[in-house]
Design a protein around this nucleic acid. Structure first.
Lengths: 123, 123
DNA sequence: TTGACATATTCTCATATAGGAATATTATTT
DNA sequence: AAATAATATTCCTATATGAGAATATGTCAA
C-alpha cells in the first residue's frame, strides 16, 4: 500500500509545511481570500488553491463565496485531535525541569550530609 | 516533487497511525523490545522494525542493544515541536465562548460609536 | 558448529503525492 | 459580448511511500 492520502485525517494534512504556513496566515480567525494567502506567502496561486483544497477536505478550513472571491476561514477545532494526542506526552518535557531540580536538590542534601559527617569527626 | 519523506521531520513521521500506535506502546518511558511491540500491536515484525526505523531517524525513539534484543525507548522531547505548534491554536477551542462574547461586545461598542457620531451631527 | 531466536533489510508493487505549466471555470466590469 | 480578474482544475513527472514476502544479519545456547 502507498502512503495514506493527505486528506485522510488532520495528521496527514498538517504534515506538509506549506499547509502549516497557510494555516498560520488564517490564525486570526478572520476570512481571507486566496489572493491574500498567495501574496502573503508568495506562492503560486494553483499551489495555494490545491493546499487549501486539502485543508478543506479534512475540515481544517471552511470556504464561502464573496463575489468572485473565495473566503477561507480557519476551523481550528479540527486541530484538537492533534492537540489531545500530543498533550499525552507533554508531561515528559514539562517535568524534565522538576527532575533536574530534584536531582540537584538531592546532591545538595548529600553534600550537606557529608559536611555534617566531617564536622562531626572534627568535633 | 513528491511528498516529503517520512523521515524529514516529526510531523511527517507521526502522520502514520501505526507509528502513533507504536509511540503509545512506549509511552511509559521504559525500554521495550521490538518483540513486545509486535505482540502488543499484533503487527508483522518487519513492519514494526521499519516503523521504528523511521521514528529513530527523526529522533522520536532511541535504541540500545541488550543481547539479541533491541530496546527502544521513547524520546518524547522530540514531540515538543508538534505540541508548540498546535498550542498556538488551543485558545480557539478553549476560549470559544469568550471569543463570541468579545465579538458581541465589540459590535456593541461600534454601535455606540455610530450613535455618538449621529448625535454630534444633530448638535 | 549447528540450531534457534530476535531483528533488520531487500525486493516488488500499487498508489499518492507536490510542483510546474497550462487551461478551465466563475464572477465582474465595461 | 468581450475583456478582466480570481480561483480551481487538469496534466505531467519524479519520488516516496507502506504492505507483504523473502531473506539477511546478529546473538545466544547446546
Amino acid at each position: 500500500m502507498a502512503r495514506a492520502a493527505t486528506t485522510t485525517d488532520v495528521f496527514n494534512a498538517i504534515a506538509e509545511p506549506r499547509r502549516r504556513e497557510i494555516i498560520a496566515v488564517l490564525i486570526d480567525g478572520n476570512e481571507h481570500a486566496v489572493g491574500e494567502v498567495v501574496s502573503t506567502l508568495r506562492l503560486p496561486q494553483p499551489a495555494v488553491s490545491k493546499h487549501l483544497s486539502v485543508l478543506r477536505k479534512v475540515g481544517i478550513v471552511t470556504v464561502s463565496k464573496r463575489g468572485q472571491l473565495r473566503m477561507y476561514r480557519l476551523n481550528p477545532k479540527e486541530l484538537k485531535p492533534v492537540h489531545d494526542w500530543v498533550k499525552m506526552y507533554e508531561r515528559f518535557w514539562t517535568h524534565q525541569i522538576d527532575k533536574v531540580k530534584e536531582r540537584a536538590e538531592q546532591k545538595m542534601m548529600q553534600r550537606i550530609a557529608r559536611e555534617n559527617q566531617s564536622t562531626k569527626r572534627e568535633e
